[in-house]
């Protein structure tokens, strides 16, 4: 399965809805999307991963890269994920300490630093 991406604005946040597989083959598309958003001045991102079927370390690398970019502008990158198999990957790599992970888009949008 391929990667699907869509973005929408909720208040001062930009929600990026990701679906499908984030792997070495598709991760560049996600990277481009995040870079484009930051270049266009969207510094508060919420990445909704509820429809992601597969995530590998390349995808993690892109998310970490996105986090670095928004932080360079005092921004934020929050994740929405309830899938245990995806959450497990964040836990074993220690990235749960790096990314705020929320159970819903509403919760992520309402969250303050």
């Amino acid at each position: 399965m391929d990667l699907s991406l869509s973005t929408r604005t909720v208040g001062d946040r930009t929600v990026v809805e990701v679906g499908g597989e984030i792997d070495v083959y598709t991760a560049p598309k996600l990277r481009e999307q995040l870079v484009e958003l930051v270049n266009d001045g969207s510094y508060h991102l919420v990445v909704d991963m509820e429809r992601v079927d597969f995530l590998d370390s390349t995808g993690l690398g892109v998310l970490v890269g996105g986090l670095k970019r928004v932080r360079a502008h005092e921004g934020s990158l929050r994740l929405v994920c309830n899938q245990e198999r995806i959450l497990k990957i964040f836990r074993i790599t220690g990235l749960t300490k790096v990314f705020p992970i929320h159970t819903s888009v509403d919760e992520a949008v309402a969250a303050k630093d």
């Binding site: 990277r31 370390s57 993690l60 690398g61 220690g94 990235l95 300490k97 790096v98």
Partner: peptide, 25 residues
Amino acid sequence: PDGDGNASGPGGDDADVDDEMGLAV
């Protein structure tokens, strides 16, 4: 990891993070 987001290891760009993360996974 939770300081300024700049890892103190070899953290130049995304690609550098991947290899270590792969083994960690």
